Amino acid sequence: MKTSTKLIAMATVALTIAPLAGCGSASSDATSEHTINIGIKFDQPGLGYKNGNDYSGFDVSVAKYVAKELGYSSDEIVWKEAPSKQRETLLENGDVDLVFATYSITDDRKKVVEFGGPYFVAGQDLLIRSTDKSITGPDSLDGKKLCSVTGSTSAQIIKDHYADKVQLMEQSGFAECTTALISGTVDAVTTDDIILAGLAAAKGDGQLKVVGKPFSQERYGVGIPKGQTETVKKVNAALKKMVDDGSWKKALDEATKGTGYTPNATYNPPTVFDAASSTYDFKTSLN
């Protein structure tokens, strides 16, 4: 009888503990799963930059704001590197939920992903050595060696419109391009002006400068998996709120402080968030 009583008591305790353990486990799983994967650049000072475990830049600030509006705190964001040539693949494979990575809206890209925004409008420009007097804009590139990043609209514009004038080196990131420029391997780095301003400022010793004659219009959008139209609406609502409450300007001022960069006030901050039109027609911009 004593043994039977003891077994019954142990069984009762076990049944009491089991549901509690189950609830604790479920709660833990739910917390760990409430995250959002966001793709950014890791090598663009002032926009998307990774330093140890810290992430900074305008793209990062915009991503945090939008994520908060979607119900995610900063510590629930999982940052993923999104190189230019991998952005569509990351979205299509479900590796990321959103991409904030100087992602220009184009008609070709809209065939495979959705876009929220635009949340910023930049222009393609040239980064050169401060001592170089020969490059004054896109019309002075004959015979020059340029560097840009594989998969970027900047590289494609050079291929489409300057292939017969320049030699283009494509690299996986702008750190490699900047190194090539400083060493004299190339004559200029080309991409969006705000990116170049950050790269020039990151050197901190005046070795590099931005020419300051943009020759395209790049509308930065938020990359979203194809078909997620409700997410597009929520992202656009968040972007509008960010502009309206002053957070957009505050984030941009902080990101570009000390670079000497001033965004084109005609297009910034954006007032329409529909991603309806693609990147500004390059040929028209030459007129």
Rank of each mutant, 00 (worst) to 15 (best):
M1T: 12
M1C: 05
S4P: 03
L7G: 01
L15Y: 03
A18G: 10
L20G: 00
A21E: 03
A21R: 00
A21I: 06
G24Q: 12
T31C: 01
T35C: 03
I36G: 04
I36R: 02
P45I: 00
G46I: 15
Y49A: 06
G52A: 14
D54K: 14
G57D: 09
F58V: 04
V62R: 13
V66H: 03
K68R: 07
E69Q: 11
S73D: 06
S74G: 02
A82T: 02
P83C: 06
S84D: 00
E88I: 07
E88R: 00
T89S: 02
E92T: 01
N93Y: 01
D97S: 04
D97P: 00
A101F: 04
Y103P: 02
I105R: 04
T106C: 05
R109K: 09
V112H: 10
V112I: 13
G116D: 00
P118G: 09
Q124M: 12
L127F: 08
D132F: 02
K133H: 12
K133S: 13
K133M: 07
T136E: 12
T136A: 09
P138G: 11
K144F: 05
K145C: 03
L146Y: 12
C147R: 04
V149I: 15
T150S: 10
G151Y: 02
S152V: 11
S154Y: 11
A155T: 02
Q156N: 10
H161A: 15
Y162M: 11
A163V: 01
K165N: 10
K165H: 13
L168W: 10
G173N: 15
A175T: 14
E176D: 13
I182Y: 04
G184C: 07
T185P: 02
D187Y: 07
D187L: 10
T190K: 05
T191W: 00
I194S: 08
I194A: 12
I195W: 00
L196R: 05
A200G: 00
A201T: 02
A202P: 01
D205P: 05
L208I: 01
K213Q: 07
F215L: 11
S216R: 07
Q217L: 14
Q217R: 08
E218D: 11
E218Q: 11
G221E: 01
P225A: 07
Q228H: 11
Q228Y: 09
K233I: 01
K234Y: 04
A237F: 10
L239H: 07
L239E: 11
K241D: 11
M242W: 01
V243N: 05
V243I: 05
D244C: 14
A251Y: 03
A251L: 10
L252G: 05
G258V: 15
G258P: 09
T259M: 08
T262Q: 15
P263L: 15
T266E: 14
N268V: 06
T271F: 00
V272L: 06
F273V: 13
A276T: 12
S277N: 12
D281H: 09
D281V: 08
K283M: 08
T284L: 13
N287V: 04
